[in-house]
Amino acid sequence: MDNKVAAIGSHSSVVLFRAAGIHTVSAETVKEAEKAVADLVKLGYGIIFLTENYASRLEDELKRYRASAYPVILAVPEKSGPTGYGMRTINANMEKAIGTNIFDKE
């Protein structure tokens, strides 16, 4: 199983991942991020950390990776702080599975 890990995002957001020894790709535009995701998947990266601003805008492109176990694409907050996209994803999954969100809405 492929166990290569990569992170995609703006330079200042992914530099931290480089510190942890993860291959990083800086992308300054959505287009660049989209291309980076496709390339990395093709290269067999199993885990990809993608910053939230790109993940939210590439939602449709990322849908096709949803059905298989790998690659795992995780939206991580960027330097400017979490946008709430991660929480929204969790709630969306919840609603899809149970039919309603049973967690208290903050």
Binding site: R66, A67, V72, T89, I90, N93, M94, K96, A97
Partner: peptide, 8 residues
């Protein structure tokens, strides 16, 4: 998170 998405 992937497990949740797939289970959902």
């Amino acid at each position: 998170e992937k497990i949740c998405a797939m289970l959902a």
